[in-house]
């Protein structure tokens, strides 16, 4: 059981996140009221998405150097888990935006560009489905995956830094402003990051195990 300790850690951290996230005292700022608690669930989703997409692109790069079909299966699995977490992040964000910004889809640059980035990754998944030949699929989707990742970074990291955003802590920083976040919230947020990322890795390993059963002749 020695190698499963991180799964237990994920469960403990997430239980802590959910219980503490809904019960601790948080500063009430204007119309935000209690909705600031969304921070513990919305922001970690993006961490999970970036983790998964990084795993995916790393495997694609490795595929193009060695042409090992296992790498392609890993890249595909990470891509789909990443899109899953991206959709969760987007929906928690839009839910919050509906009540605080006064509109589900606003003109906010970060929201729009994230939607674009998610669409690119969905195109990646569709591309994978559209090619029946397994070697061809591996090669073409690896190329597209690298292309997608190279666009993900400017879309979600560089351009949002250059324009104003409705996001909290915006006007300069695309992430939340760590300097003016309440200490109590930080005590929940940082464990939440670790817990959610561990959960995403856990889901990823499960998807990979399913793929291994599906592609028995590749994973010997």
């Amino acid at each position: 059981m020695a190698k499963h300790w991180w799964k237990a850690l994920a469960v403990i951290l997430l239980i802590y996140t959910i219980i503490a996230g809904f019960t601790i005292d948080i500063p009430i700022i204007g119309t935000n009221q209690q909705s600031s608690r969304g921070l513990f669930f919305h922001v970690p989703m993006w961490m999970c998405m970036y983790t998964m997409f990084s795993i995916s692109v790393a495997n694609s790069l490795l595929y193009l150097t060695k042409y090992d079909l296992k790498r392609d299966a890993l890249a595909g699995a990470a891509g789909s888990v990443g899109v899953f977490f991206g959709v969760l992040g987007f929906s928690t964000g839009t839910l919050w935006a509906t009540y605080t910004w006064g509109g589900t889809i606003t003109g906010d640059a970060k929201q729009q560009l994230t939607a674009v980035a998610l669409l690119i990754y969905m195109a990646y998944l569709v591309l994978r489905m559209s090619i029946p030949d397994i070697d061809k699929r591996a090669r073409i989707s690896a190329v597209f995956n690298i292309f997608a990742f190279a666009l993900l970074i400017p879309l979600t990291y560089i351009i949002p830094r250059m324009v104003d955003s409705l996001h909290p802590g915006a006007a300069g920083s695309p992430t939340f402003a760590s300097k003016d976040t309440d200490g109590g919230m930080k005590a929940v947020l940082y464990p939440a990051f670790i817990g959610w990322v561990l959960l995403s890795v856990w889901i990823y390993t499960l998807v990979v195990r399913y793929k291994k059963l599906e592609l028995k002749n590749i994973f010997k």
Partner: peptide, 17 residues
Amino acid sequence: AQANQNAALMAIMGFPI
């Protein structure tokens, strides 16, 4: 062109980018 000469695929991949 590599993916079975599929022009519809180009639209799916291209529009978000």
